[in-house]
């Protein structure tokens, strides 16, 4: 699963997700893409699940790009622990997603196959997404 090799801060604050994704909102590599329509956190497990779903459907044809990276650590306190005694230990990595962000890009396959593959990935994600196609060329 994707995770940073080393980080400056082991634990970070939660933060707020405001505004739209002005960066990373256009297709850069592929012809088809999956665009987030809502904000949310996308964990490295969800990225991996979506990647596997797409690759299994494409059957190793075409090319897939993951255009997000989970660089934010999430902490969790152990079960049945009283409040206090400091912040919990890092448990997961998430990517902060804002509306408009491109998550995956696909190239080298037919439109129908790309749509079917990304439909499978949509089921793995915790927010609404849209399958888009490059149109400016």
């Amino acid at each position: 699963m994707l995770s940073p090799k080393r980080v400056r801060r082991r634990k970070v604050q939660k933060g707020r997700r405001r505004g739209k994704a002005y960066r990373g909102s256009a297709l850069s590599f592929g012809i088809y893409g999956l665009k987030a329509l809502e904000c949310g956190w996308m964990s490295n497990r969800q990225i991996e699940a979506a990647r596997i779903a797409i690759n299994r459907h494409l059957k190793r044809t075409g090319k897939l790009w993951i255009t997000v990276f989970p660089d934010k650590p999430l902490t969790k306190k152990p079960a049945e622990t009283r409040m206090g005694k400091g912040k919990g230990s890092p448990e997961a990595w998430v990517a902060v997603i804002k509306p408009g962000r491109i998550l995956f890009e696909i190239d080298g396959v037919a439109k129908e196959l790309a749509n079917q593959a990304m439909k499978r990935a949509q089921y793995k994600l915790p927010f609404k997404t849209q399958i888009i196609e490059r149109w400016e060329d």
């Binding site: 994707l2 995770s3 090799k5 980080v7 082991r10 490295n44 991996e48 596997i52 230990s89 890092p90």
Partner: peptide
């Protein structure tokens, strides 16, 4: 295989994360 690849990668990542925390 795909599944094995994913699991292996996951184990590798977890191992790396543990190593990171120990270093920290």
């Amino acid at each position: 295989e795909e599944g094995a690849e994913g699991e292996a990668a996951a184990e590798g990542a977890e191992g790396a994360a543990e190593a990171d925390t120990e270093e920290a």
